[in-house]
C-alpha cells in the first residue's frame, strides 16, 4: 500500500499542494484536475523526483525516500514529456533503460521482446524511432515503464497529443496492465479515466477535493443535470456544461439547483459534468 501522509509541497511562497492524505491500493487511480492544480507535483513526489515540504510518503509503512533504490526498483514511470533517443530502435532503447533499472541481461532480452509484443511494436522493434508517431512513442513509453514489472505504475498525462483511436488503444492497454498493481494516472481529460479508473482523485485550490469511485463522484450532481434544445428559455440560474448536435438541433447540457420549467430532460450526470462544474471558475 502506498500512503501519502499529510503532504504539503511549497515552491518558495507558492503552495502547490496542501495537506494531502491519500491511500493507494491495487487498482487504477485517476488524478483528475485542470492544468496547474498540482497533479504533476504529486506525481513527482510519488516518483521521488521531488520531496514533500511537509508530511511523508510511505510504501508498506516505509518512507519512500529512505527506501531509495529499493523503491525505485518497484516503480514504473512514464513522464509527461517522454524523451527518447531518436537514433535508437525500441529494442535498443528498452535494453538501455532496462540496464539502468538493474535488470539482468539474461532476462532483459526476453522481457523486451514480450513487452514490445504487448504494445504491438514487434514489427518495428529494430526500426529507429525517428519516424515513429506520437502513439507509437507513447507505447514505447509504457513498455519501458513496465520493464521491471512494477508494483506501482505512474503515468503522467499519458494520452496528451494522441489521436482518439490511439487514446482508446492506450486506455485499453492501461486497463490490461492494471492487474495486481497500483496504477496512478494523471490527466485533465475526463474520458481517459472515466471507464478505467477504480477511483478518481480531484484537487481544488491545491487541496484534496475527493478520492472516490467515479459513480459516487457523479452522485454529487444527481438530480441537477439537465438537457434541453431551448437553453435561451431557461430563466433559473444555471451553468452550461456541454453541447451536442442531433437532428439539426443543438442540445445543451446544463446544471441547475432546481429543475427549470419547459421541455427539460433530467439526465444522469457523468464525470465530465462534475469536472466542468467543480472547475467552473478556473481557466
Amino acid at each position: 500500500m502506498l500512503t501519502v501522509n499529510h503532504v504539503t509541497k511549497n515552491y518558495g511562497k507558492f503552495t502547490a499542494l496542501e495537506d494531502i492524505t491519500l491511500e493507494f491500493n491495487k487498482g487504477v487511480y485517476g488524478l483528475l484536475a485542470p492544468n496547474g492544480a498540482g497533479k504533476t507535483t504529486l506525481i513527482k513526489m510519488l516518483t521521488t523526483l521531488l520531496f514533500p515540504t511537509k508530511g511523508d510518503i510511505l510504501y508498506n509503512g516505509d518512507d519512500i525516500i529512505a527506501l531509495d533504490e529499493d523503491y525505485r526498483d518497484i516503480i514504473g514511470y512514464l513522464p509527461q514529456d517522454f524523451g527518447y533517443y531518436k537514433n535508437y530502435s525500441p529494442k535498443q532503447f528498452l535494453n538501455y533503460l532496462g540496464t539502468l533499472k538493474g535488470i539482468e541481461k539474461s532476462v532483459l532480452d526476453k522481457k523486451t521482446e514480450a513487452l514490445l509484443s504487448l504494445v504491438s511494436l514487434s514489427d518495428v522493434a529494430n526500426k529507429k524511432m525517428r519516424k515513429f508517431s506520437g502513439g507509437m512513442i507513447q507505447r514505447v513509453g509504457i513498455a519501458q515503464a513496465m520493464l521491471n514489472d512494477p508494483e506501482i505504475l505512474i503515468l503522467d498525462e499519458p494520452t496528451a497529443g494522441l489521436d482518439p483511436k490511439e487514446r482508446v488503444r492506450f486506455r485499453n492497454l492501461i486497463s490490461s496492465l492494471s492487474q495486481n498493481r497500483i496504477v496512478i494516472l494523471s490527466t485533465h481529460i475526463v474520458s481517459d479515466i472515466e471507464t478505467i479508473a477504480n477511483k478518481v482523485i480531484m484537487f481544488k485550490d491545491h487541496q484534496l477535493l475527493c478520492n472516490d469511485m467515479p459513480k459516487n463522484i457523479c452522485k454529487y450532481l444527481e438530480g441537477k443535470v439537465f438537457e434541453t434544445s431551448e437553453i435561451s428559455k431557461i430563466e433559473k440560474p444555471h451553468l452550461v456544461l456541454t453541447q451536442r448536435q442531433e437532428d439539426d438541433k443543438t442540445y445543451t447540457r446544463f446544471t441547475s439547483e432546481e429543475k427549470p420549467a419547459g421541455h427539460i430532460k433530467e439526465v444522469v450526470p457523468n464525470l465530465e459534468d462534475v469536472f466542468l462544474y467543480i472547475y467552473k471558475d478556473e481557466e
Binding site: 513527482k44 516518483t47 521521488t48 523526483l49 533504490e69 525505485r72 526498483d73 516503480i75 514511470y77 513522464p79 514529456d81 517522454f82 524523451g83 527518447y84 533517443y85 533503460l97 540496464t99 539502468l100 533499472k101 538493474g102 519501458q144 521491471n148
Partner: peptide, 17 residues
C-alpha cells in the same frame, strides 16, 4: 535527451552514471 527525469527514477540514476 529529455530523459533526465526518467533516468532519475531508475534503479541506477543518471547521477550515479
Amino acid at each position: 535527451s529529455h530523459l533526465y527525469e526518467l533516468k532519475m527514477t531508475c534503479k541506477y540514476t543518471v547521477k550515479q552514471i
